[in-house]
């Protein structure tokens, strides 16, 4: 069979999302949409002494956007905020480990866009800046 997007790890995160929910209050919170498919993701962070102590995401949409956001929360939890800021789209795509086509890149990067926009306090982050 062809090299599928839908590997077990992706499907596992989609079916059993990690850190799903909300933090209220949160130190950083941002939500964004992918206008192409209507995917929605929100990410909440709590930071203590420069360390991301808690992270939650919520959202709905395709398996790629939701699994990617779920995996992102595992990637940032417990790490220094400065390191989290430095996470690039390639880091996340490596983590996903699947061949993401240009058409699905926006799905895969939605969570990271939320994370970055939340931390930097901006309305939106362009894909090229991730």
């Amino acid at each position: 069979m062809v090299d599928s997007l839908y590997r077990e790890q992706i499907l596992d995160h989609y079916r059993n999302p990690r850190n799903k929910g909300a933090l209220d209050p949160a130190d950083y919170s941002h939500e964004d949409q992918n206008p192409l498919c209507g995917d929605e993701v929100r990410i909440d962070l709590r930071v203590h002494d420069g360390i991301v102590t808690e992270v939650r995401f919520d959202g709905r949409g395709c398996a790629i956007s939701q699994a990617s956001a779920s995996m992102l929360t595992e990637l940032v939890e417990g790490r220094p905020l400065e390191e989290v800021k430095a996470i690039t789209k390639d880091d996340l795509l490596d983590e996903l480990g699947i061949p993401v086509s240009p058409a699905r890149l926006k799905c895969a990067l939605l969570g990271l866009k939320c994370l970055k926009a939340g931390i930097y306090g901006v309305k939106s982050v362009h894909d090229d800046e991730l």
Partner: peptide
């Protein structure tokens, strides 16, 4: 409850081209 984009992506893996979206 499979998202239409996931449906279309799996169909694409089988060489079947459909549209998914609004």
């Amino acid at each position: 409850d499979i998202h239409p984009h996931d449906v279309a992506a799996i169909l694409d893996e089988e060489g079947v081209a459909v549209r998914a979206g609004h």
